Amino acid sequence: MPERNIEFGKYGARGVRGSGLVARRLDELAGGIATPVTAKRGLIARLHYLTRTDHARAAAREAGLTVTDRTLKAWLEGRRTPSKANLERIDAAYRMVRRQNVARHLLRRLNREGRGTRVEFHPLNQSQVPQPLQRVVEYRSMNVRRWDRLVGAWAAGDDQGLDDAWTTEVLPDLGSQWGQFEFCSNVGFAA
């Protein structure tokens, strides 16, 4: 098995960690509120999502939204507006709670009763790499059947765990040249 990339981009290659692209795609599949938190509509929608049940309130507190009920009520009624730091906390808490709520459903759709989901790997961009140093990399696709660790780490917000699951469970199935796909320009899949 090849070693992991230590000095990625040293000769001008461009790309993003595959696990980061997977997290981005899972966020897209999870959906959510499109209006930004800085708009009143987006703020109110996120606050309603985070406060509609006791379970949601507890998850929001775990995710870092630790304001009093009185402050939340004032924000919902429009009597006060949250600071920039609190807006960021509200958005982060919303994303975390949304991930936790959607993870089980998304996992079932991705695993498809053991059949898995087709994943496309688009190679890194080597246009800035001098010709003698360029690798031959091509587009690849394969069926990923084990999504449990990937979705679990994504739902928990564990970037390192997601990267470890990606590089130990998914990439080795690409064969002996899996190291070429540690960094990619895109990773695509649907659920």
Score class of each variant (00 low, 15 high):
Phe183Pro: 03
Arg41Ile: 06
Leu72Gly: 09
His122Thr: 14
Gly42Met: 01
Phe181Tyr: 15
Glu120Asn: 00
Trp166Val: 03
Pro172Met: 03
Leu76His: 06
Phe183Lys: 01
Asp91His: 14
Ala190Met: 09
Arg118His: 08
Ala153Gln: 03
Leu106Ser: 07
Leu21Pro: 01
Leu21Asn: 00
Leu47Trp: 02
Arg140Val: 00
Arg61Ala: 10
Glu138Leu: 11
Arg61Tyr: 00
Leu106Cys: 10
Leu87Gly: 05
Pro130Met: 12
Gln180Met: 07
Arg115Thr: 13
Thr53Ile: 04
Gly161Asp: 11
Val16Trp: 03
Thr35Met: 05
Ala59His: 03
Arg146Trp: 11
Leu174Gly: 05
Val187Lys: 04
Gly161Cys: 11
Ala39Gly: 04
Arg104Asp: 15
His122Ser: 13
Ala56Thr: 05
Met96Phe: 04
Trp154Phe: 00
Tyr94Arg: 12
Arg108Phe: 05
Gly179Leu: 05
Lys40His: 10
Val136Leu: 09
Gly78Phe: 10
Trp75Gly: 02
Ala191Gln: 09
Arg135Phe: 14
Tyr49Met: 08
Gln128Met: 13
Leu150Thr: 11
Ser127Ala: 14
Gly161Lys: 07
Gly32Asn: 10
Asn125Asp: 15
Gly175Glu: 07
Ala13Asn: 03
Leu110Thr: 03
Phe8Val: 04
Arg140Met: 07
Gly20Cys: 04
His48Ile: 10
Arg46Leu: 11
Thr168Met: 04
Leu150Gln: 02
Tyr11Val: 13
Pro130Asp: 12
Met142Leu: 10
Arg24Gln: 15
Gly15Trp: 06
Gly9Trp: 01
Asn125Ile: 10
Arg25Asp: 00
